[in-house]
């Protein structure tokens, strides 16, 4: 119960109800214009939109997952859970899940590590004397590092594909100019050992700026007295970052981790731009790509819907894992905040 005592509805409620509403009696559910319009605008409308455009498609997908619908006719048969049992033994889908999980583990980890480092440098990493501040020129870095996030994902993908082009790309051009001849015509996106790390790097490049900004906002919310106290106690910058900053913005890190994880488990746009055919030996093929292929090139919408449901489950499990790990390691997400 969060209702604060003494903050009941203003007396005007009864006044609005008008004469004839009888003796002053507190009633619940009596619809005044005020409460009805409030419910309609702030509850009914968003909820209806949510149900129609989010929940209803979910329900439909779950239903079609149990049919053999081809996607191009109005006819289908109910096949129960056989699509799901087929998924468990489909080597292509299992490979895609494995790749997605790899992306889901490493992209958030690397992005957050880099973003956090930069955020700390820009906010509290400056001179150890005087006021708590960031490194020199931090305002400039803050603006510049957000640039990649402003570029649409598909443009990021296409741009990097050109940069990584084996024969005419910037990367190999620089490397061969430095005398590293083995990188002449080296296909970064065409080798099993490099395709996935390079794809991760591109995604991280695109997201670091935004999450850095998120962490900067969080760190700015920490009172500078705490830093000053820590400094007086003799804590160095590393010590402050680890023992002061990180614990105090822990919730933000958790949120960032979940958002990034969800992005990394989808990743359709990036992989489709960088390696539309799934990468060398399907090493960058992700769940969403396999789903799209199953639906539109193989004409199996029922089976593809089952993949969608499986994808949702993987994402939920991921979120649950992050919460659990955070809680077990002493996070504060459920206790004492409020």
């Amino acid at each position: 119960m969060t209702a604060i005592p003494g903050r009941a509805l203003p007396a005007s409620e009864d006044a609005l109800a008008g004469p004839g509403s009888g003796p002053r009696k507190r009633r619940i559910g009596k619809a005044s214009f005020d409460s009805v319009s409030f419910f309609v605008v702030f509850l009914g409308l968003p909820l209806a939109l949510f149900l129609i455009f989010v929940i209803w498609p979910f329900v439909q997908a779950a239903f079609y997952a149990m049919t053999d619908w081809s996607g191009f006719s109005a006819e289908f048969n109910f096949v129960g859970l056989s699509n799901f049992s087929a998924l468990l033994t489909d080597p292509r889908f299992i490979n895609a899940v494995g790749n997605s999980v790899m992306f889901g583990i490493f992209i958030p980890l690397v992005t957050i590590a880099i973003a956090l480092t930069f955020a700390i440098l820009i906010t509290v990493g400056g001179s150890a004397r005087g006021q708590i501040r960031g490194v020199r020129g931090s305002g400039f870095y803050r603006v510049v590092s957000l640039f990649p996030y402003v570029i649409p994902a598909i443009a990021v993908g296409i741009m990097w594909r050109l940069i990584l082009d084996p024969s005419n790309g910037l990367v190999n051009g620089v490397l061969t100019a430095l005398g590293l001849d083995r990188f002449e015509s080296f296909a970064w996106l065409g080798n099993v050992s490099t395709a996935m790390p390079v794809t991760m790097l591109v995604v991280v490049w695109g997201f670091v700026g935004f999450y850095m900004l998120l962490f900067i906002a969080a760190i700015k919310g920490v009172p500078s007295e705490i830093y000053e106290a820590a400094r007086i106690d003799g804590a160095g910058r590393m010590r402050t970052s680890w023992s002061i900053t990180l614990p105090l913005i822990r919730d933000n890190v958790q949120t960032a981790y979940i958002y990034l994880g969800i992005t990394a488990l989808d990743l359709f746009v990036y992989v489709q731009a960088l390696n539309p055919q799934g990468g060398p030996d399907n090493s960058t093929l992700v769940m969403s790509q396999q789903l799209f292929r199953t639906a539109f090139t193989e004409g199996k919408f029922g089976y593809a819907s089952a993949m969608g449901v499986a994808m949702a489950i993987v994402t939920l499990v991921f979120a649950a894992l992050v919460f659990t790990v955070n809680r077990l390691t002493g996070g504060t997400s459920e206790r004492g905040r409020r």
């Binding site: 409620e13 619940i28 509850l43 909820l47």
Partner: peptide, 27 residues
């Protein structure tokens, strides 16, 4: 019934539930 006539969290929640129940029928 909640004796408190203000749109407290519970009444809000309840309204959510009513609306949730009603919308799909209207679709």
């Amino acid at each position: 019934s909640n004796p408190n006539p203000a749109p407290s969290r519970r009444t809000v929640l309840r309204a959510v539930m009513y609306t949730a129940a009603a919308v799909p029928f209207g679709l």
